[in-house]
């Protein structure tokens, strides 16, 4: 049983200023009894989310509303300040755009390294399949990623990250970078992942995209859940039909 369960989760994010990084300053502050003021913002405030197999959750909200932080909480990057997080299933977080790539390495090596980081032993066929999905020219496999455009880079990363079924996939502003053709393909793949009993959580500003991809959209504001919208199932259905036609 794969599930995400967040109960009354809060995260107090400490904002370290230049002085807070200094041990000397801190020790001095203790000596002269200077009240060390550590600024803390509540990045996630009393959030409760329950999700089970097949859920596709969209996180919407303005900049700084806590979308990425919430994804990182689920991924286990930040420990929650209070509340409980229960995750069952293995989480594949794809949050930053360049997570774990080395731009100096050639594309193929990067793919192999990323696969190893996510715990798989890369084989030639695996890499071939991933490359086929990116629809990039074969000669580019031997080029360092530094020479790729951001859209091309995104294709490679997306293809690698989604090559294997994940129990729980966390995406942050992922689909909006690539061009329309690839976005459709990416969505088809995401839907495919979902159909293989997975949970996907996507944070994005792109409301139409969220509506097309998700079953539930959570609007965040200042770290709180402002509203939750359930997207009508027919939307997803239409997309599946289109996928079959294509």
């Amino acid at each position: 049983m794969i599930s995400i369960s967040l109960r009354n989760v809060c995260l107090d994010y400490p904002l370290y200023g230049a002085y807070d990084y200094s041990l000397k300053r801190r020790l001095l502050g203790h000596l002269i009894r200077e009240p060390g003021e550590m600024r803390i913002i509540r990045a996630v405030d009393d959030v409760t989310i329950e999700a089970e197999t097949g859920a596709r959750i969209g996180l919407a909200g303005p900049n700084g509303s806590g979308k990425s932080t919430l994804l990182r909480l689920i991924a286990g990057v930040y420990p929650p300040s209070s509340g409980s997080i229960t995750i069952r299933g293995n989480v594949v977080p794809l949050l930053g755009l360049n997570a774990g790539v080395n731009l100096d390495f050639v594309a193929e090596d990067n793919i192999a390294l990323l696969l190893r980081i996510s715990g798989r032993k890369p084989t030639q066929t695996m890499i071939d399949e991933i490359w086929a999905f990116t629809e990039l020219e074969a000669r580019m496999r031997r080029l360092p990623l530094r020479m790729f455009s951001s859209g091309m880079l995104m294709r490679v990363l997306f293809a690698t990250a989604t090559a294997f079924p994940a129990d729980i996939l966390l995406l942050d502003e992922w689909l909006s970078v690539v061009d329309e053709h690839f976005a459709e393909k990416a969505q088809a793949r995401l839907l495919h992942l979902v159909s293989r009993a997975a949970i996907v959580v996507i944070a994005s500003h792109d409301q139409p995209l969220l509506r097309r991809t998700c079953t539930r959209i959570i609007n965040l504001d200042h770290g709180r859940i402002a509203s939750t919208v359930t997207v009508e199932p027919p939307a997803a259905h239409a997309l599946e039909l289109r996928e079959k036609r294509a």
Binding site: V77, V91, L94, L95, G100, I117, D172
Partner: peptide, 9 residues
């Protein structure tokens, strides 16, 4: 930083 924050390693 990116592997820690974005890949949760």
């Amino acid at each position: 930083a990116s592997l820690i924050r974005d890949r949760a390693l």
